[in-house]
Design a protein around this nucleic acid. Sequence first.
DNA 1: GAATTGGTCCGGGTTACCTCA
DNA 2: GTTGAGGTAACCCGGACCAAT
Length: 209
Amino acid sequence: MEDDKACTLCLSLEMGISGGYVPKKDKQKVHKSVPCLDLSFDLYPKEEAIDVNHDDEAKGLNLKRNIIEEEEQQDPNSMITDNGSRKKLRLTKEQSALLEDSFNFHITLSPAQKQALADKLNLRHRQVEVWFQNRRARTKLKQRVVDCEFLKKCYEKLTNENLRLKKELQELRSLKVNISKIATFTTCSSCKELMNSNEGNIELESIRS
DNA sequence: GAATTGGTCCGGGTTACCTCA
DNA sequence: GTTGAGGTAACCCGGACCAAT
């Protein structure tokens, strides 16, 4: 049982799955087949809840186009300041909290959901989109650090175990040599001294010494 | 049915700004 | 007031996928 657990754990680490990260290929397939987007509880008025998993996917794309066009026209808070430098928005605590809540519920959003969230937070669609992209990246980075720490501990443990086993092997080898020495010596019946029976060499000198 | 093309999304990397010690 | 580090919003690029042709 313990071995099974250990095996599963190691496999998880190898695959880098511990943070729930899903490869893009798989994710997109899942997106098609699994009804996973239920953010309507929070992001939409009930009557406007959007099911983007079916026919509305195309509507979502159209919506996104409209959103971008509108934003380009209105440009409510341009990212470029008067002197040409990039303006950096700081999200409020409330905005961050709601984004975090949404992220905890689902790490990706449909265009419609992004827009609903953006409306709710008084942000642009693009800003919500970027926030989710960065948030996923941060999650992955943190998980990588955690995995790295875990692997480091595993490495240390295995190194210690390796040392211990090497030491044990060395002891066993020296023990074996001693045993074989004793086993290969026979006693000369006439002189009552030890003799090496294998090679016929008398090792009285070494034994006496 | 296979190839091409255009649109979209996402991950990874980077830049630039902001905050804080 | 200055500076360096860390956090992060915003950007860029390439790849994957999908639908239309």
